[in-house]
């Protein structure tokens, strides 16, 4: 998806695809009624999030861009995993070792930026005595 312009829903309606590869405009009421659409057909594609990250970067917000890139990494993880990782990062939920495990899991799933975020959290939690 090179040289796309924002908003995608306006300019590239037929090109944007869900994670399953199904095009956004195939997501019709008829298809839903016929049971031909699954939850994953409504899941945003990591590529799309990366394009949105580029738009954010160009719009002057590198932090929003970073967030969207982390989102792109998490997009392919199951809901339960994402919820579990979030919970693990909350105060008093995990040991340093458990956070490292999560970082490894993330990395293995191609989520290098998220893994780095978890490792950074781990280091500061340790330094501030939140975890051991």
């Amino acid at each position: 998806m090179a040289e796309l312009s924002y908003p995608l829903g306006e300019h590239h309606r037929s090109e944007v695809r869900a994670q399953t590869g199904r095009a956004a405009d195939e997501l019709t009421v008829e298809a839903v009624r016929a049971g031909r659409v699954g939850a994953q057909d409504a899941a945003i594609d990591p590529e799309t999030l990366l394009r949105q990250a580029d738009f954010a970067e160009r719009g002057g917000n590198p932090q929003l861009a970073d967030n969207l890139r982390r989102g792109a990494e998490l997009a392919t993880f199951p809901d339960d995993d994402v919820l579990r990782f979030y919970d693990a990062l909350r105060p008093g939920r995990s040991s340093a070792a458990e956070l490292e495990e999560i970082a490894v899991t993330l990395e293995a799933g191609g989520a290098a930026r998220c893994a780095a975020l978890v490792r950074e959290a781990r280091a500061h939690y340790l330094r501030r005595g939140l975890i051991s």
């Binding site: 899941a43 945003i44 999030l49 967030n67 969207l68 982390r70 989102g71 792109a72 990494e73 998490l74 997009a75 993880f77 809901d79 994402v82 919820l83 990782f85 979030y86 990062l89 909350r90 105060p91 998220c114 975020l117 978890v118 950074e120 959290a121 500061h124």
Partner: peptide, 13 residues
Amino acid sequence: WSKAFLAASYASR
């Protein structure tokens, strides 16, 4: 960090 992760979680969906 947990809040940043949460933000990314929302973006991911």
